[in-house]
Structure formats: C-alpha cells, structure tokens
Amino acid sequence: MQLTFEGRAYDLRPGESVLDAMARHGVGLPSACRVGSCQACMIRSVSGDPGPDARRGLKATWLASGYFLACLARPSCDLTVAEPGDDAHTAARLISARAMGPGVLRVLVRPDRCLDYQPGQHVTLSRPGGITRIYSIVSLPAQSARTGIELHVRVYPAGAMSGWLARARPGAPLSLGSPAGECFYLPGNSAGPLLLAGTGTGIAPLLAVARAALADQHPGQVVLIHGAAEPDGLYLGRQCPPELTASPGSAVSWRTCVLSDGEDIAAAAAAELAALACPPGSVRAYLCGGAGSVGRIRRALFMAGMSLADIYADRFVQAGAGR
C-alpha cells in the first residue's frame, strides 16, 4: 500500500499506523499519546479511506473535512494525506465595500469559480501588493452564487487590507484561499440547541451558522450573543437582525454584551446555557472572536458542564499591520 504526502509516495506495511509509517520514512508528525486520546496527530485525508478506527472521537465538523488520527489509522488501501490547511487560490473581484456600522465594512466579492465551503468557515483574502488577511464568510453558498461572497471587515486606521478595501473600486482584483475552520454548521447533525457567541466581527461566521441552521429548518433553539468592547461595536444592532426572525417557526434569540457597560460575555453565555435547561450533551456551542474572549467563553461553558467536543471555536489572530 502507498501513502502519499506532499507529492511523495511512501510504502505502508500491512497493520502499520500512518503515524508509524511516516516516522519510519523520517516524516515526523506531532504526536503524544499514540492511542487516540490526545488528538495531536490529526491530519486530513485527501483521497482514500483511513478506516473507521482512525475517526474515533473526532468532532463531526472535522470528520466532514476528512480529518483522522494518524496514530489509529491502519488503512487497507492507498491513502493521500495532507496537513491541515494547505492552500489553493481562486481569483476574484471586488463587488462592493460599504460601511455597515462604525469601523466595519460589508464587503462583497465575486470569485471566478464556485468556492466550496461550509457556512461559518473562513477564507484568506489577498490583494495586489502581497497583503493577505483572513475573514469569515457570512453568506450561505446559495447567496454567494447570487450576490457574491459576503465578508464583514473590521477597519483599522492604518489597515493594509481594510484601508485598501475602503478605497478600492468595484472590479478590483483579489484572490481567495481555501476555506477552512471547524466552526461551521452541519445540516442534520443534531436537533439540539445552538449557542452562538461572538465578539466584534466574530459574530459574522455565527450569522452564517444561524442562517444555515434556519435554512436547514433546525428544530432546536438558536441563541446568538454578540459581544463588543464599546456600545458602537454592536454593528448589527441591539435587536435580532430581521432576516433571522422572518422565517416562520424559527426560534432565534439575540443578546448583546457590551464590555464597557460591565457585561461579561462569558457569564452571559453560561447563563444562556443554563436557561436552555437541556442535558449538556445536547447543546452545541460555536464561539468566534478574539483569542482572549473566546478562551474565557469556552472555559465558562466547559465549567458549566459542556464537553470541549461540543464547543466549536475560531480565534481571530490579528495580523501585524491590522486585520
């Protein structure tokens, strides 16, 4: 059997794990426990089946992206694997960039070909001059096909990307990378409530998750919490966006948290979880925003009884020159 990684083929002995085979060939993957507990050696299958054992205990969104554990994978067929997040590019053009509140632009981008992604994933956006930033995709695939890919862009005073987008003309050339991220909605995965908490433009991917849940007629309640440092950071407003309440039978609630008013989003998220009054295993939480606040919300939900396996988190990391 053959194992292909980064364009090179390695032989795989019967019964040998992918992790061991790669180590034998001098390719070291991160690993620790080697028995499927720590999940440090998680990689992605591009083609071929790593076998059911290799997917034990992984989150549903990781499974949908082809991830598996190299230490438990003993495939019985050829396998091509890749490290998480390798990149391919799609040419695109700017449709428009308009302010939607203080310091946030609603940017619409038209890719040259259909971009394959899950609602809630993020994508790299590059402009001429070699500047690249990561943004979450707000629009559902069907909306993107009609009106373009929607991104919510935080404007920084000297932002190499955001400042350029604010001034750029429609039609300006751009490039999009491969959509990535584990913070996405899976249709039909579970009927339980969704708890979506985001700070700043971290609410953008959660809006996509909420839109996808509604489009899927998700039976469980959808709770959105938008956190901001200051009141004017609530760029979607204090009330639930009308698009989320328009569909009949939708059970969407919207809560805002302003840090300067002494409102703590981690405590708010834990309170919303308690208010759902559901068994901890039935709720899924999606968190997005700055690393500090996402970490605090995640910890609060974990302490309130949620398993980390049910918490999907994307942390924003600011680029050197501003995102």
Binding site: A32, C33, R34, V35, C38, R299, L308
Partner: peptide, 23 residues
Amino acid sequence: DMDRQIAKQASFLTMALGGPNEY
C-alpha cells in the same frame, strides 16, 4: 492552554489506568 492540558492529562490518565501508552 486548556487543549494542551487536556491532551497531557488524557495521556497521563491512560497510563495511570493501565491503558496502552508510551508515557
């Protein structure tokens, strides 16, 4: 880091509980 910590503790517990390990 909660994830690193849980990975390490899972690895340790596997050992302490007599599971297969290279701890």
